[in-house]
Design a protein around this nucleic acid. Structure first.
Length: 269
DNA sequence: AATCAAAGCAACCGCCATTAG
DNA sequence: ACTAATGGCGGTTGCTTTGAT
């Protein structure tokens, strides 16, 4: 019987979002939340499918998104988490406040993968060249061309009042929580992170340094220990489920730091 | 100044898991 | 218990920007 398509393609707009669309979406979610993505575009008067709206919100319009270049510490975090979790970008993103799975995925594929294993990426490119000659994109392994950061905002970039790396625990919990389906909570909390609340969670270099150092202190060694562990090695033999493994590592993160404040401020999963 | 290849990133696609009826 | 609807995720595509020539 096959499931219905995500949205009827007829008449629905695709491609880059315009500032007007962004404004409409933000205003609608601000007022009504996003309890039902499928119904949202119709209610908001957007000619988009719900999936597109959701993606735009999650990856770009959410007020707690942290934009701009990834710091070295963040990149190291991604590398280590990737060692542990593999391509589970959403799980990795859950541990990087303000970063989206899409963004992390992009960073991984454009920077980190090559950096970690240039020879492998070169091999892959070779394979790809043989496999799909039509592909127009070629990337020399040694290439290290850096694009100018974020000054080049996309056409559809909204004006972002929240460019700081501040985020509230509550909003992060909502956005990354597994239980989902809390439109009301989202409605109430999503936009508070941008406001001037006193208990905002300030993320800076020291936070990342402390966070990263936590499991390493526990393991009694340096970053390489964790980073070099195979997932099956890192995960305890007793824990069979992936979630249990993730919980384990989160616990290590939490317990590893002597600073309670930092531990408490870690994003909820 | 013009052209072209590569990098970067937003957005789409298709599948799977979960939930509601 | 079954089916359809919905949400969410990872993989991939393709457009825009950038830097080299």
């Amino acid at each position: 019987m096959g499931r219905a398509p995500c949205c009827e393609k007829m008449g629905l707009k695709r491609g880059p979002w315009t500032p007007e669309e962004d404004k409409t979406l933000v205003a609608h979610i601000k007022s009504f939340g996003h309890g039902n993505w499928r119904a949202l575009p119709k209610q908001a008067g957007l000619l988009r499918c719900g999936k597109s709206c959701r993606l735009r919100w999650i990856n770009y319009l959410r007020p707690d998104i942290k934009r701009g270049n990834f710091s070295d510490v963040e990149e190291q975090t991604i590398i280590q988490l990737h060692e542990l979790l593999g391509n589970r970008w959403s799980a990795i993103a859950a541990r990087l406040p303000g970063r989206t799975d899409n963004e992390i995925k992009n960073v991984w594929h454009t920077h980190l993968k090559k950096r970690l294993d240039p020879s492998a990426s070169a091999r892959q490119e070779h394979d790809e060249e043989e496999g799909q000659q039509a592909n127009k994109k070629r990337k020399p392994a040694a290439a290290s061309r850096k694009r100018k950061p974020a000054a080049t905002a996309p056409v559809s970039s909204p004006e972002r009042s929240v460019s700081t790396s501040t985020v509230t625990e509550s909003s992060m919990a909502v956005e990354h929580g597994n239980s989902g389906s809390s439109a009301v909570s989202v409605k109430e909390e999503s936009f508070t992170s941008a406001s001037e609340e006193s208990d905002e969670f300030q993320i800076d270099e020291s936070f990342w340094s402390e966070t990263l150092s936590m499991p390493l202190l526990v393991s009694g060694s340096n970053n390489d220990v964790v980073a070099s562990m195979e997932p099956h090695e890192a995960f305890g033999a007793g824990s069979s489920s992936v979630d249990g493994d993730m919980d384990y590592w989160l616990r290590v993160f939490m317990e590893g730091g002597g600073d309670d404040d930092v531990a408490l401020d870690l994003p909820q999963i």
